[in-house]
Every structure is written in structure tokens, then in C-alpha cells.
Amino acid sequence: MQHIVRSKHLVLFSLLCSVALMAGFSLSSKSFLLDIPSQSDVRINGYPVNKNGESYGPDIKDSEISPDLILVQSGSVLGYVKSSDLNDGVDSLAEAISSTPTSKTIPIYLEDGTTVIGEFYVGG
């Protein structure tokens, strides 16, 4: 009888974990649902803008416009860095990564530009 009760609890726990993961949550660490516009969406509609008036999305190499918040990945963290944090006289994420003479760490944000979810290493 005790074995059956444990099995039912294990099944219930597994089901709850699956539901939590599908909803964008994690039991071991924080997870966030990130709004990421596709490159084709950006080309057609322009970059989306958050409530602070900042544009966000991927840095499209052949585009003349860059967003205020640029999509990056650092380890398992996917989010946005402020272009102003990257800009030391450079125009793109790739340029900033390759030409920064000193290394620095800058915050990674959600698309709101205020919620910090990680750190991004830049430099040589």
C-alpha cells in the first residue's frame, strides 16, 4: 500500500513539474518568457518598442538600423543588452565584441530594459 501511495505522489510531482516547465517556470532557477522578434518581422514591421520607448530585437547585420536593446546569449541566458552599454565608438555587437580593448561585464535584461536576468562578457 505504501509503495502505491509513493508512486502516485511521484506521478503527481512529475506532472506538476511538466506543467511548470511548459508555463515557462523552473524549479531550480528562474526562467523567463522572452519576447524575441524574428528577423523577417523586424524587416517588415521594424523593431518592437517596449513601454520605455526602447526598441529591441536581433542585431541584423545588413540593416542600417540597430535596436536599443540587442539580443545576446551568455551561456544558457538569452536576453538583451543595451546598445549604449556596448557602444565605445562601435556600430554593431560583433564590432563591440572584437574591438573592446578592455574586458567588461554588462547586464542582460528582459525586453523591458529594466529586469536584469544575467551578465554578458565583452572584451579581449
Rank of each mutant, 00 (worst) to 15 (best):
D62H: 08
D41A: 11
V11T: 14
Y47K: 06
N50L: 02
V42Q: 03
P48I: 05
G124E: 14
Q2I: 10
K61F: 11
L33D: 01
I117T: 07
E64V: 07
S7R: 14
S83P: 00
T115S: 12
P107L: 05
L86Q: 03
S84Q: 12
P37M: 02
T115Y: 03
V49T: 15
Y47D: 06
L71K: 05
G118A: 09
S55P: 13
C17R: 13
Q2R: 13
S29E: 15
Y121T: 13
L16G: 03
N52E: 12
K82T: 04
L15N: 02
T114D: 12
N87W: 04
D35Q: 09
S63R: 01
S66V: 13
L21Y: 14
D88Y: 07
G24Q: 04
Y56K: 02
E111D: 10
G24T: 04
V72D: 02
P107Q: 06
K30D: 12
A20I: 05
I108T: 00
S40A: 12
L34A: 02
S99P: 03
V11F: 11
K8L: 15
I106G: 00
G53H: 05
N45T: 08
L71Q: 05
L16Y: 07
D91I: 00
F25Y: 13
P58V: 01
P37C: 06
V5K: 14
I108H: 00
A23F: 01
L12N: 10
Q2E: 14
